[in-house]
Nucleic acid binder design. Structure first.
Length: 876
RNA sequence: GCGGGCAUGGCGGAAUUGGUAGACGCAAGGGACUUAAAAUCCCUCGGCCGUAAGGCUGUCCGGGUUCGAGUCCCGGUGCCCGCACCA
């Protein structure tokens, strides 16, 4: 049994000939910085093709975590590779710096949010620099910089003018303790995530962005996002949620209620109309409200519906409750038939029209409601599935021919829907057709108001005389005040003594400044455009932003699949309309990388332990037991996402200090495909570091072979061919973001160089050339080691400035190839043939093989398949 | 419930898209060097049979298509993710 010690417990071994990462890396980082190598040239006037690679910018929480390291390493490999292949590369970095944590920290630690945020940015910038990323730091900005959010206010006003932003009353989650609105994601089981207080539904006037106007376009354009993962495209399509159907009007039987004499429903299944047995309204439907005015019981019921929680649990366990209003509507197809109208707790006011017709036979939810209220269930579809249960037991949701449906009897679903709509379109109700075709989307407008201090102020003023007045554009930015009271809950802007009181920009009379700030998702919806000209006096500069956008490769976590990426797509369209941009899609290529996960450890008393507190025992490669430093038993838990609560995090700084940035970069790229989770193990990191040392030894070895007189070329050495073949593969693999495969290729080349003959001058010349190519190939991945090796090989310049080597195509062609020979599909032999050998000759050669002759036993083969350069198969 | 994805040695994963399954790495075992260790180097490493040559078997399970299936089709199992009273 062997006890593996955690690397922090080990004394570092430091032999003099070993590669000293900390010294080397700091030196090359200084060199790159001195030469300002990664500053991007303006797109205008640069003859090279542009390439924009962007990783999702971080929230400045205070520390870089290992997930950032993985994300930015991938982007950096691509950026360095594209630079080497002749592109003008934009690879910027900034900070998504507004948001709640800064305010919470301010309350807890009595630090100003601004101070806290900028201190964090300084710390994290230093960490990123120690990773050796080829970022253009001249373009850095934070979204909380007055300059940035001032331009954002300008965009806001332009959007307002273009009717892309508006104000409306809306229901919001209100936390009565923290005195703020909470996003749906911040409400857990009906309680505020921070205060734990029961969240109330409040009606407040809020700012909204008209993203729903773009539903159809945002959905259709998904088809064009060919370099996006299918998963994200599907998620966005589902989120936008298109439903095709009809809006159908039902006449109220008898007297009108006030001005209301009909009810409109949206339905995707008008084919089931003959099975309709009731109608249900949302509590906030205009008819529900009108009827409640004279009915205290209904008013109480409506109130109960409104209070119903938004949590998943509340929805799953809720009964189908209803209140019979006594009102009845006439069935559109059946003379003299009327349907009872209920108010029901499962009808949503903000989808469709807030009213449905219920067909219990073929909708499970309607079925539940019908059973609860003793309503008729009429089957109108004859089940095509043999094992279908009768509609007395559950709703039938499958396909089949229509029954009990008058003119639709016998039709299939699609034809029946068409027939029903045509019928209703032709029918007249009060002077217009009884139904119109309609498409509904699930996507709602985006509420961007937040009752928070640490965000971008919404640049408008409320004047008693003039109403809502935009701030004058030459007064922008509307700055956040620095002198605030952060010690009390609620919005410090709302109780600021002077900041609120302003003159109306229009009439000059005293007015009040808007105290809402913008959702931080607004900040991240256009930062990628600002990077194209981050110091410009306008939000964007046409010739730069249109040259750089769309981002060629965007890299980030799947958790942003919907919100951030959808908002950004909307913003690009809004910016196009307002003249700030001339592309529609912000991100041409999207890559969602996996997480970094780590084993968890739990002590006997249930507390989670850090990896450094635990020793794991292994037997025959299996992890058998773990012990704490004091010898007590430790339970090995699941391997999961690194998190503070499970204490399974690894601090990048410590790894860099112990092994260097190149080691952690190499480890992040090895083994796991980039879209999948990577399991952090000490052994894996040590393996990566061994490779760094091995490459350094090899390069010095080759450099020490001496020049060797240039031998008369006796044909390419094997190692030259291998190097070019590897180069060809590595190039395509990096371009396809298949980093783990590129890493494997590089390992193989190192193996080949180590084993290659070194006897002749010709050998040595070939080896030196192959080794130089090797260094260039791993330069995007381990840039510091590459520079040091490049120098050791006798080159003067920097490897990161040397163009990517060209593949010698003539070396890729092989003259002879080993073909596997199958008999009846099983591999029985192999044969070495010239690549250009004719099929007949290959067959002739194969038939002479002893195994083949034995198998045939004098008979003719039934069939011979020859796939050139692949395989031969003899069917006996 | 709806939608999407994944399943290959002890482990992470390769496999040019239907053509030699297990590249490359990790772990493990054996050996060399060393007073000893570390580092390094060499060998073995899916399973079964065999001294060996070699044979059989093998990519979650059951069928199918094909000269040939990890890859395509049908059915199933198990995990993971997203959305969800959406009419």
């Amino acid at each position: 049994m062997k006890v593996r010690q955690h690397f922090f417990n080990k004394k570092p071994v430091m032999a003099s000939q070993r590669y000293d990462a900390s010294e080397v890396e700091a030196r090359w980082q200084r060199e790159w910085e001195t030469r300002n190598l990664f500053a991007t040239q303006p797109a205008a006037g640069d003859p090279r093709p542009n390439y924009y690679v962007l990783e999702m910018f971080p929230y400045p929480s205070g520390r870089i975590h290992i997930g950032h390291v993985r994300n930015y390493t991938m982007g950096d490999v691509l950026a360095r590779f594209k630079r080497a292949t002749g592109h003008n590369v934009l690879h910027p970095m900034g900070w998504d710096a507004f948001g709640l944590p800064a305010e919470n920290a301010a309350m807890q630690n009595k630090v100003h949010p601004k101070e806290w945020t900028y201190a964090n940015i300084d710390a994290m910038r230093a960490q990123l620099k120690s990773m050796g990323f080829s970022l253009d730091w001249d373009r850095e900005f934070a979204t909380c910089d007055a300059e940035y959010y001032g331009h954002q206010q300008r965009l806001f006003l332009d959007f307002l003018d273009a009717d892309l932003i508006y104000r409306k009353k809306a229901k919001v989650n209100w936390d009565p303790v923290d005195m703020t609105v909470l996003a749906n994601e911040q409400v857990i089981e009906g309680r505020g995530w921070r205060s734990g207080a029961q969240v109330e539904q409040r009606e407040l006037t809020q700012w909204f962005a008209k993203i729903s106007d773009f539903s159809a376009e945002l959905l259709e354009a998904i088809d064009g996002l060919e370099r996006w993962p299918d998963k994200v495209r599907t998620m966005q399509a589902n989120w936008i949620g298109k439903s095709v159907g009809a809006r159908i009007r039902f006449a109220i039987d008898g007297e009108a209620i006030g001005l209301i004499d009909e009810i409109e429903c949206f339905s995707t299944r008008p084919d089931t109309l003959f099975g309709a047995t009731f109608m249900a309204l949302a509590a906030d439907h205009s008819l529900s409200l009108a009827l409640a005015e004279n009915d205290a019981n209904l008013a109480a019921f409506n109130e109960e519906c409104r209070r119903m929680g938004t949590s998943v649990v509340a929805i799953e366990t809720a009964e189908k409750k209803g209140f019979d209003t006594g009102v009845r509507v006439r069935h559109p197809f059946i003379e003299d038939k009327t349907l009872p109208v209920y108010v029901a707790n499962f009808i949503l006011m903000d989808y469709g029209t807030g009213a449905i017709f219920g067909c219990p036979g073929h909708d499970q939810r309607d079925w539940d409601f019908a059973v609860a209220h003793d309503l008729e269930i009429i089957p109108v579809i004859e089940p095509a599935e043999a094992d279908a249960k009768p509609v007395t037991e559950e709703a039938y949701l499958g396909d089949g021919a229509m029954i009990n449906s008058g003119f639709m009897d016998g039709l299939k679903k699609a034809d029946a829907i068409e027939a029903a709509i045509s019928h209703l379109e032709a029918a007249d109700l009060g002077g217009s057709p009884q139904a119109t075709r309609e498409i509904n989307y699930r996507l709602r407008d985006w509420g961007i108001s937040r009752q928070r201090y640490w965000g971008c102020p919404i640049p408008v003023v409320h004047c008693e005389a003039c109403g809502v007045v935009p701030e004058a554009r030459d007064k922008l930015p509307v700055l956040l005040p620095d002198d605030i009271d952060v010690e009390n809950p609620g919005n410090p802007l709302g109780r600021h003594p002077t900041w609120r009181n302003v003159e109306c920009p229009q009439c000059g009379k005293p007015a009040l400044r808007e105290t809402d700030t913008m959702d931080t998702f607004v900040d991240s919806s256009w930062y990628f455009a600002r990077f194209a000209s981050p110091r410009a006096p306008t939000p964007t500069v046409a010739e730069e932003v249109n040259a750089w956008l769309p981002v060629d490769q965007y890299i980030g976590g799947i958790e942003h699949a919907i919100l951030h990426l959808l908002y950004s797509r909307f913003f690009a369209r809004a910016m196009k309309i307002t003249g700030h941009l001339d592309v529609k899609e912000p991100f041409a290529g999207l890559f969602t990388q996996g997480m970094v996960v780590h084993e968890t450890y739990q002590a006997a008393d249930g507390t989670w332990l850090e990896p450094s507190q635990v020793q794991v025992s292994e037997k025959d490669g299996k992890r058998t037991a773990a012990q704490r430093d004091d010898g007590s038993e430790v339970r090995i838990g699941n391997t999961e996402k690194m998190s503070k609560s499970k204490r399974n995090t690894v601090d990048p700084d410590k790894i860099i200090a112990a092994y260097g940035a190149d080691t952690i970069r190499w480890f992040m790229l090895s083994d796991s495909p980039p879209e999948r989770d990577v399991i952090w193990t000490d052994a894996g990191v040590e393996g990566a570091h061994r490779f760094v040392q091995r490459v350094w030894r090899l390069v010095n070895d080759i450099a020490g072979l001496g020049d060797g007189a240039e031998a008369a070329d006796a044909g390419a050495a094997q190692v030259t061919t291998t190097a070019h073949r590897t180069l060809d593969n590595v190039g395509t693999m990096i371009a396809d973001l298949r980093f783990n495969s590129a890493v494997a290729q590089i390992y193989s080349l190192v193996n080949a160089i180590e084993k290659a003959p070194r006897e002749s001058a010709h050998d040595r010349t070939a080896l030196r050339a192959a080794t130089a190519m090797l260094v260039q190939m791993f330069a995007p991945m381990m840039p510091h080691l590459a520079e040091e090796c490049w120098r050791a090989l006798g080159h003067n310049g920097l490897v990161c400035e040397v163009p990517w080597p060209a593949v010698d195509q003539s070396l890729l062609a092989v003259s002879e190839i080993v073909l596997p020979v199958q008999i009846n599909g099983k591999r029985r032999a192999e044969i070495s043939v010239a690549t250009d050998l004719a099929k007949e000759e290959i067959i002739a050669a194969v038939l002479k093989l002893a195994v083949v002759e034995n198998a045939l036993a004098g008979k003719d083969p039934r069939r011979i398949i020859v796939v050139p350069e692949r395989i031969v198969n003899i069917v006996v």
